[in-house]
Every structure is written in structure tokens, then in C-alpha cells.
Design a protein around this nucleic acid. Structure first.
Lengths: 158, 158
DNA sequence: CGGGACATCATGGGATAACATGGGAAAACG
DNA sequence: CGTTTTCCCATGTTATCCCATGATGTCCCG
């Protein structure tokens, strides 16, 4: 199962287009979609993105809630209302909407970071800073990664 | 399966016409209807809308209730009695009925918010306020989707 | 091992199509 | 008849398509 991996920084042209890294493109395509789904992170100034597989799982989670419940409406507003389906053109580029760019403080360059089932899009310098911090935290969180064979029962989600 | 996603704010002209966002239009069309079904929300000052698929499922939900119960009648009078089938014209516009506009406090602009199987139509500033609240609550509901990996990535449960 | 032929990719620009929006005229309605 | 709705056309803006270029990588063959 392919997943998003690696880091790529691409330019944004005058029309707002960016090349989606070729490797990301092929992940999305292998999931049956000629595009990606993006939405502003509600945890920081960056854009979250994914292929249809992850996006569908979010959708299914929402459909399990009562159709007129406040929880469903609020979660859907944030997760779907703010999201955008960005199809790539014949050259593999996507058009980053103005509001998403503003959220991430992105001007003329964007850094794509693969995170498995999803990826993130950052303003390059902002990502540098985040990455330095992530490295620190990773050191501390390293203990959380257990060898699968060492997990006691099933579930593991302490 | 296509669904309503994204947020769009369009103008209402002197005749009361609004462009239904092109993406919403194609969702409705793919469900076999050249229009959408709209009705006032019973939980707030906004309009609920959907394609025929969701509208049918609402119908079925009503039919599961006791046919002569006051609950059923109350819900039906809002969900069906106040609902309108709005066909879009050759340019993809719909005509928002006066009572629906009044319910949502909509004057000359309308914000369409995609929520999966359904969508909502808001007065832009009212939606802004709702969204801010939704963002807060979504963080609280975040237990449902806390770490992104907590979501079933590839059909974990279903 | 080296060098080139070729594919892939990111990027730029011009042409074209799609979309939101405004207004006029015909048609439907009461 | 007057009012409201539908249809048609015009326009500016935005997005999409198509082609060109250069840079990088890959592969094959000598």
C-alpha cells in the first residue's frame, strides 16, 4: 500500500498553480483519484492533504452520526466545509485556493511533507521551524513506538 | 460517490437568483436531479439543502415514526411542508424563496457550505460566527478524530 | 566504468473553456 | 394586464488545457 513519504518544495506560479510532487500524485492516482483533498489544519498554520482513502474514512465517520445532530454539523463544517477537492491538471499541478494559502502563510513556495496516509503543505520557513521542534519532541516520544510483537493484547490504544 | 464539499459565497441579484456553486450542481445532477431540495433548519437560522438522495432518506426516517404522532407531524411540516424543490435554470442559478431567505436572514449574499450528503445556506456573517464556534467544539469533539491516525485509515472497522 | 540518448519532472506562458453575474425580452401566472 | 418566472445573451474573471523549455534522473550500450 503506497503512502505519502518525503519532502518536496515547489514554486507557486503567477496563477496560483503548484506541481504536486510526482510521487504524491501517483499515490493519489493509485487510490483512484486524479486529485487530492486539502483543508486547513485546526492545529496550526499549515494545510492538511490526503488521497480519497483517508478523505472517505472521514466522510464515513461523519455519516455514522445523526444527520441533524449539532455534533455532525459542527464537525462536518470544519472537516468538509473548509476542505477542497483539488484535481491536478494535465501537467500534474493543483490550484491552491486563496484561503488555504492565507491560512498557511504561503506566498510563492510550498513545502509538501509526506506523513503516510496524509500529507501537509507548509510555508517553507515555517516548516523549518516546526521540523526543529518535531525533532526534539520525537526524541521524547520515541518511547511510544513499540515493536508490534511487543504489544500485549489487541487494541494498544492505551 | 460524490458529495457536497467546500464553501462558496455567491451574490443574490435583484430578481432573487443565486448561482448554485458548480460543484454542488454536479453533485445534484449526478443524483439525477436538475435542482436541489431546500428547507429551513429547525435548529438555527440557516437553510438546509440536499440532492434527492438525502431528501429520500429524510422521507424514510419520517415514515419510521408513528404516522399519527404529533412528533411526526411536527417534523414533517418543517421537513416537507416548508421544503422547496429548486430547479436551476440554464445558467445554473436557483431562485431562493422569500420565506427561506427570511428564515436565514439572507439579503444579498449567500454562503453555501458542503457537509457531505447535505449542505447548508447561510447569511455570510452568521456563518462566520457559527464556524468559529464549530471550530471550538470540533476541538472538543476531537476525541472522535484526535490523532489523525485514530481514524480508520483503510476500512479498519466497517 | 563512462557517456550519451531518452524519459520524467517542475515550471512558464498563451489560448480556450467554465463560471458567476448582470440585464433584456419572452413566457407563464393569477 | 401587471407581476413573477424563465430563457437568452453579454461580460469580466477565473480556471483549465495545451505546448515549450530546461533541469534532473535513468537506462542502455559501448
Amino acid at each position: 500500500m503506497e503512502s505519502f513519504r518525503g519532502r518536496f518544495t515547489n514554486k507557486i506560479d503567477a496563477k496560483g498553480r503548484v506541481s504536486l510532487p510526482a510521487k504524491f500524485r501517483s499515490v493519489a492516482t493509485s487510490q483512484g483519484m486524479s486529485g487530492v483533498v486539502c483543508f486547513p489544519s485546526f492545529r496550526g498554520s499549515f494545510i492538511e492533504g490526503s488521497g480519497p482513502r483517508f478523505a472517505d474514512s472521514v466522510m464515513q465517520m461523519l455519516e455514522r452520526l445523526d444527520p441533524f445532530s449539532p455534533e455532525r454539523d459542527m464537525l462536518a463544517s470544519v472537516l468538509l466545509g473548509d476542505s477542497a477537492e483539488l484535481m491536478f491538471d494535465s501537467d500534474g499541478r493543483i490550484l491552491l485556493p486563496e484561503d488555504l494559502r492565507a491560512h498557511a502563510g504561503i506566498a510563492d513556495e510550498a513545502t509538501f511533507v509526506g506523513l503516510g496516509e496524509k500529507f501537509q503543505i507548509w510555508e517553507p520557513k515555517a516548516y523549518e521551524a516546526f521540523r526543529a521542534e518535531a525533532l526534539e519532541k520525537a526524541r521524547a516520544y520515541g518511547d511510544l513506538l513499540k515493536s508490534p510483537s511487543a504489544l500485549p493484547p489487541a487494541g494498544g490504544a492505551q
